[in-house]
Computed example of a mutant assay.
Amino acid sequence: MSLSSFLYILRRAGALCLLGAALGLSAAPAGAAERTVDPKAAPNDFLEAVANNMLDAVKADPQALQGDAGHIADLVRRYALPYVDMDKTTRLAAGRYWRQASDAQKTALVQAFTGTLIRTYSGAFTRVTSGTTISLLPFRGDPQADDAVVRTTISQPNSPAIGVDYRLERTDAGWKVYDLNVEGIWLIQNYRNQFASEINKGGIDGLISALNAKK
C-alpha cells in the first residue's frame, strides 16, 4: 500500500487521535466529566479513558465539529500527545538512519514528524460525527508484558468498518502508544519507506525540510 493510500484510510476511518488515542468505546454524552487517565492501568482501560476524553472534547466543541483543523490540533495536543512516545515512533521510522543523525537533527526530526502526524490526525477528526463509534475487540496479549497490541474497529455511518490496531510500550511512566496499524498496514513501516527516500535525496536535513513543508 502506498503512503498516500494509507493516509487516505486513516482519514476515512476518522482515526480518532494521534497514534492510538482513538481506542475505546463510544464516547459519553457531551458535557460528561473528564475521565482520569491512568497510564499504569490495563492497556484497554488506559486507552479507553484517553479515547473517550478526546472524543468527548471534539463532540462538545462547535469549532471542532465544523472542521476547524487548527482548533482540532490543539485538542490533539492536549488530550492525545501526552500519551504518545514520538521519540520512539520517529526513531523506528528512521530506522538505520537514526544513528547517522546528530542530537540536534534528532530533536528537529521528532518535532517535524510530530507536526506531520498531528496535521494528519486533525484531518481525520473533521469526519467525526455523532454516529462515530469505536468497538474494543478482546485483548489477546499478556497485560503484564512490556509491549501490547490492542485491536479496535472504527465505524462511521454509510462507510465500511475499519480495523485499527495500536501498539503500546510499558515505560516507567506507564503505557505509551508508538505505532498504529490500519487494515494490516503499520504506520511506522509506511513512513520508513518515505523517510528512506527523502534521506537518500537530501540527507537527514532534507527529510526534516520535507516534513515541515507538508502543511
Rank of each mutant, 00 (worst) to 15 (best):
S2R: 03
S2V: 05
F6Y: 07
L7D: 05
L10C: 09
L10D: 08
R12C: 08
C17F: 07
L18D: 13
L19C: 14
G24T: 11
A27D: 15
E34F: 04
E34L: 09
T36W: 11
T36Q: 09
K40D: 03
P43I: 08
E48W: 15
A49F: 08
A51R: 10
N52I: 06
N53Y: 04
A57V: 03
K59V: 02
D61E: 01
A64G: 06
A64R: 00
D68K: 03
G70K: 08
V76N: 09
R78M: 12
K88P: 04
K88H: 07
T89I: 10
A93K: 00
D103P: 00
A104K: 11
A104G: 10
K106P: 00
K106D: 03
T107Y: 08
A112P: 01
G115Q: 12
I118K: 09
R119C: 08
R127D: 00
R127F: 10
S130I: 07
T132S: 15
S135A: 15
R140C: 05
G141W: 05
Q144F: 07
A145C: 03
D146Y: 01
A148K: 01
V149W: 05
R151F: 11
T152E: 07
S155G: 14
S155R: 14
Q156H: 05
P160A: 10
V164S: 03
D165C: 00
R167P: 02
R167N: 02
R167L: 01
E169I: 00
T171K: 05
G174W: 01
K176I: 11
V177M: 11
D179S: 07
L180N: 03
E183S: 07
G184C: 08
I185G: 04
I185T: 09
I185F: 05
W186L: 02
N190S: 07
R192E: 09
A196G: 12
S197M: 01
K201W: 00
G202D: 04
D205I: 01
D205R: 02
